[in-house]
Design a protein around this nucleic acid. Structure first.
Length: 365
DNA sequence: CCCTCGATCAC
DNA sequence: CCTCATATCGAGGG
């Protein structure tokens, strides 16, 4: 069997690039795409920014107020998210990508994995040619540049795409895995965020090379079985995850920020109802049912709390979802009356496709 | 094995 | 000053 070859296609600074295309005049300026929370005129965070803005230190997740400071002496452009538009562009691109590979996996609105093993005959040279064609096709389709990482598995393809953004093309061949990973910081491994990096730091591990010195039992004890073995393999550039898309979601959630912190049900429930409405609308668009309903409460201290209830039978009815969400919220407020809530959310899980048959209880409603 | 809940990641 | 959405894991209880 031939060498497996995976491509990771990453759309460059995606939301900001979409906005540049919508209004080319801003292309030469710092562009910041924002998630406004609606709490005050300016409160919210940065979703994405173009590279001009990044050169001033603007980063995703940063409060908008801070980005404004960083760009105050520039002609920086601040725009609200236009998610439906980005989705439209993304869908067009994903449709372009899908026929190329043996297997296709959309990994987010702006990234995808493509298994091109047979298309490239296991030849990295050929895979690079395919990647160049893909970049051409994506640009021709939507005038969006992308970066493509090529590797013998998903892990290395993703690491590769991170090495030369934007508008890049990087290949990691099996013989280059060792030297490349040696001095790389562990934080560059996908799935290793701040918490994991900090724990590794305590074990005197900063680079991937150093990570390879930890044995699997230590890793499993420190990070659990799944994360432990993932780290053990990742440090060696090994990853067997198949490129495999999922057709149906596992959960559907909606969250919102309240106008002000409160523990007053009359201020919270209307917002909650709207979230429940939106979540069940999506559930029904997908012709799915859920068996578990959860609420999420983010308090004034930003601590996160969840309450969930598994129903006796799956439902797709907004009424039940709303009622359950309200119940859970009142239950939470009752149990902890002194809390003040900043944000609330609704999550639907244990999803299944709606089957054709109607149960008696449904029939009688 | 199921349920609930918190934690983590990363968008 | 602090968004939104998704997936996964593990602990703890039953």
């Amino acid at each position: 069997m031939s060498q497996r070859i995976v491509l990771h296609v990453d759309l460059d600074y995606f939301y900001a690039q979409c906005e540049e295309n919508l209004n080319p005049a801003i292309r030469s300026k710092p562009v910041v795409v924002c998630v406004y929370s609606g709490r005050t005129e300016e409160s919210g965070v940065v979703s994405t920014s173009n590279y001009q803005a990044r050169s001033y230190g603007v980063k995703a997740g940063m409060p908008i107020a801070r980005a404004r400071k960083l760009l105050e002496k520039t002609d920086g452009i601040f725009l609200p998210m236009n998610h439906p538009y980005y989705e439209e562009i993304s869908d067009g691109i994903m449709e372009t990508l899908e026929p190329f590979p043996d297997a296709f996996e959309k990994a987010g609105i702006d990234e995808a994995y493509l298994d091109v093993t047979s298309r490239s005959n296991g030849d990295f040279q050929k895979a690079e040619q395919i990647a160049r064609e893909i970049k051409q096709a994506v640009y021709a389709q939507e005038q969006i540049t992308c970066t493509i990482g090529i590797g013998p598995n998903k892990l290395l393809a993703k690491i590769a795409s991170d090495l030369n953004k934007p508008n890049g093309l990087v290949t990691i061949r099996p013989e280059n895995v060792r030297p490349l990973l040696q001095n790389m910081e562990v934080g560059k491994i996908p799935g290793v965020g701040n918490k994991t990096q900090e724990k590794l730091r305590e074990l005197n591990v900063r680079t991937v090379q150093e990570l390879t010195t930890l044995d699997i039992s230590v890793l499993a004890r420190t990070f659990g079985n799944a994360m432990g073995s993932y780290l053990y393999n990742a440090a060696r550039g090994e990853d067997d995850e198949p490129v495999q898309g999922r057709d149906q979601p596992i959960q559907i959630s909606r969250i919102a920020t309240l106008k002000r912190n409160t523990n007053n049900a009359s201020e919270i429930l209307p917002v909650l109802d709207e979230l429940a409405h939106s979540a069940s609308a999506k559930l029904n668009r997908r012709t799915m049912t859920c068996k578990t309903v959860s609420i999420i409460a983010i308090l004034s201290d930003l601590s996160i709390h969840t309450k969930s209830r598994t129903l006796d039978s799956p439902t797709n009815r907004e009424k039940i979802i709303t009622q359950t969400s309200e119940d859970l919220t009142l239950q939470f407020l009752n149990a902890t009356p002194s809390v003040t809530i900043r944000r609330v959310g609704v999550k639907l899980s244990s999803l299944s496709m709606q089957s054709g048959q109607t149960v008696i209880s449904e029939f009688l409603r």
